[in-house]
């Protein structure tokens, strides 16, 4: 169901500002702790870069939109087949600096997931293992705040890949554009409701899926399930959400988790 027209009420953000900032984690401290525990040099460098303080205004935060395509939906069983990212901030989405990797999953691709992301057996056969791109990926994420539409997916799969391959912990601050959209429509953020929607149950109205959310802000329709395109789509959505519901001086802590 498409909700027509962008929200026209920027004066009344439906976000309980103070309460949410209070709940936000202290990522500076968390990064320091994780840096002490990490053994892999790539992860050590990543944590050492730290995270911006929660009271940093959004306008000063370096962001990176991330999307992963996977063999399925369960981080415990399924694996990443591609990662796309786009660095950006509130004034410029650096599509020109976007990155895209195809990686070889340890689990075979099934026809269903190929149909979703369009990455084929022959493409993954020649692709590197996730560990081979991890260094470059972490360099791109270091010091930035991740933005994803349904961030638990990106967090879950990237953490699982590090845990299984390196026995390491990967955690990072993230802004979830889907969760921001759910807040705006006064619904509890629920990955499971969204997943249920994927499996044919009726999506809640208005839909907070990426294409529907974008349409509300007048953003164009992009083809879904290409990691670089989805990352770009999420970056554009966050700029739109901030333009309509927040401001450049909104503190990071109000948005991230």
């Amino acid at each position: 169901m498409l909700y027509l027209g962008p929200p026209r009420d920027p004066g009344a953000p439906s976000v309980p500002r103070v309460a949410r900032a209070d709940l936000a984690p202290d990522w500076t401290a968390r990064c320091a702790a994780l840096a002490a525990e990490a053994r892999d040099p790539r992860l050590c460098a990543f944590y050492a870069a730290g995270a911006p303080a929660g009271d940093t205004p959004l306008g000063q935060v370096e962001l990176v939109a991330v999307d992963v395509e996977t063999t399925g939906l369960d981080p415990e069983r399924d694996e990443i087949v591609s990662v796309g990212l786009v660095p950006f901030d509130l004034t410029r989405i650096r599509a020109s600096a976007s990155r895209h990797w195809i990686v070889r999953p340890r689990r075979a691709l099934d026809a269903e997931s190929v149909a979703v992301h369009g990455i084929t057996h022959s493409q993954v056969a020649d692709a590197p293992d996730f560990t081979e791109v991890l260094g470059e990926l972490l360099e791109q994420l270091a010091g930035r705040v991740v933005v994803a539409h349904c961030a638990p997916i990106e967090r879950g799969f990237l953490a699982a890949a590090c845990r299984e391959r390196l026995g390491e912990v990967l955690e990072f601050p993230a802004i979830d554009t889907m969760e921001l959209e759910a807040r705006a429509h006064r619904q509890p953020p629920s990955v499971w409701a969204w997943l249920a929607g994927l499996f044919g149950r009726r999506a809640p109205v208005p839909s907070i899926r990426l294409a529907a959310a974008r349409a509300r802000y007048g953003l164009p329709r992009y083809r879904p399930h290409h990691a670089a395109v989805d990352a770009l789509a999420a970056a554009e959505l966050l700029q739109a959400q901030v333009a309509h519901r927040y401001a450049a001086d909104t503190s990071l802590a109000e948005l991230w988790s």
């Binding site: 962008p6 599509a95 020109s96 953003l219 739109a240 309509h244």
Partner: peptide, 13 residues
Amino acid sequence: AAAVDVRYYKAGE
């Protein structure tokens, strides 16, 4: 295409 950057502007900006 590879050199393009992107930006969203709200109506009136």
